[in-house]
Design a protein around this nucleic acid. Structure first.
Lengths: 217, 217
DNA sequence: AGCCAGTTACTGACAAGTCAGTAAGTTAAC
DNA sequence: GTTAACTTACTGACTTGTCAGTAACTGGCT
């Protein structure tokens, strides 16, 4: 593939770094992309629409991210990093605090419709064949399930069987996501109240027989 | 629908009905469209792909349905009719039987991955702005919530407050949908077991104080 | 029984648009 | 003066939808 050796080793010149303002510019693009993919979906959202929000052309976006799929991947990674940053300092909640945190999140989400919609659209889309976000979504579910399952076991003092804890963990995640969909389509659905009700119900059922019922409130 | 009187009928031209085999052909197309929209989504699924499955061109599909959006609407109506046909004869379950029916459905769904995926993809997509399936999905949720809420009140002997029953109904639908997403992405999730566990938990919580706990099994 | 007008059920070609991605040129920061 | 950060211009692949033309079927009239 390659030809004769260039005489001496080509001493790579300097100035190979991006400019100072570029990091923030890329972050701007990522936020715009998160907004577009969130409201229109990945397939239906276009690079042109993303570019317009930051005042450049779609080719400019491709200059930074190479391809639409690579942009999506970076959006997802960016969101992960943001989530971690939000929790910085304050320890990651475990045990009973995790469930209080989940209920609080549901309450906050009512004021963040756009973010909720983005999560919902992308998650739904991801179950299609060969979707570029599939791995990310699957992994996110796996991690979350593990954390919630561990918290259930901890709250139950180790008396909750693993399979019951696993089912309850899946159910808690499921009910949160499913209620978000209904709330997005119909404001009559009381997202925080229904979420709290369901989490308490599932948690109580999981702890049945451990002598620690009605854990929240 | 019209012209019940052949005798003095106006000299309308004849042969205004579709052909005999057409009904079945349209059904074929609807099934193909359900499959395509289900696996690829509505936006990402093309008329050409639908047409190929029944051995015609995309223009042939448009001949029958006029537009892609009209095709989607007919797919959804077709599925509704099928659901009704499945329940024909056997009365629509109410009271405690409704919840047994929901758990049975979850068990059946494990063997109908394609249908579940179609429902999931379309539901997720529908929360985007101006999606043609939005009204259908919203309506479906409203009807379902009403039925489940009524069943909860019935099982509770009228002692369950309306808002509690409403929250529980939303939660039951939500947990079923949310668990389906997780199961589609990861077979490790035990869809039937987690669904049954969650429905029992939510129902039990809703009936608390009515003297009728642990309603299923 | 056979014809035939009117219609249905298509096909193939094309219009008009959107999309991601590429190549080459320009400007300004380092 | 090199190179990052763009823009403009363009390509090719797909999209839905329209249209004219054609074969096949249907129902009524002889």
């Amino acid at each position: 593939m390659d030809d004769a050796v260039p005489p001496a080793a080509p001493p790579q010149r300097r100035a190979r770094q991006p400019r100072q303002a570029t990091t923030e510019r890329r972050a701007e693009i990522l936020r715009a992309a998160a907004h577009t993919f969130g409201s229109k979906g990945y397939k239906n959202g276009s690079l042109a629409e993303v570019a317009e929000q930051v005042g450049i052309t779609h080719a400019g976006v491709l200059h930074h991210f190479g391809s639409k799929e690579a942009l999506l991947v970076e959006v997802l990674e960016y969101r992960d990093k943001e989530d971690v940053r939000d929790l910085e300092g304050q320890h990651i909640p475990d045990g009973i605090e995790l469930f209080q945190h989940l209920v609080r999140t549901a309450r906050m989400n009512v004021e963040r419709r756009g973010i909720v919609q983005g999560y919902t659209v992308l998650t739904g889309e991801s179950v299609t064949e060969d979707h570029p976000a599939r791995g990310w979504v699957t992994n996110r579910f796996t991690i979350l399930r593990g954390e919630i399952q561990a918290a259930i076991v901890e709250v139950g003092g180790g008396d909750v069987p693993a399979d019951v804890a696993a089912q309850a963990a899946s159910a808690i995640i499921g009910v949160m996501d499913g209620l978000q969909v209904q709330w997005l389509l119909d404001d009559e659905v009381d997202l925080p109240a229904a979420t709290q009700f369901a989490i308490e119900a599932i948690l109580t059922a999981a702890l049945l027989g451990t002598g620690r019922p009605h854990p929240l409130r």
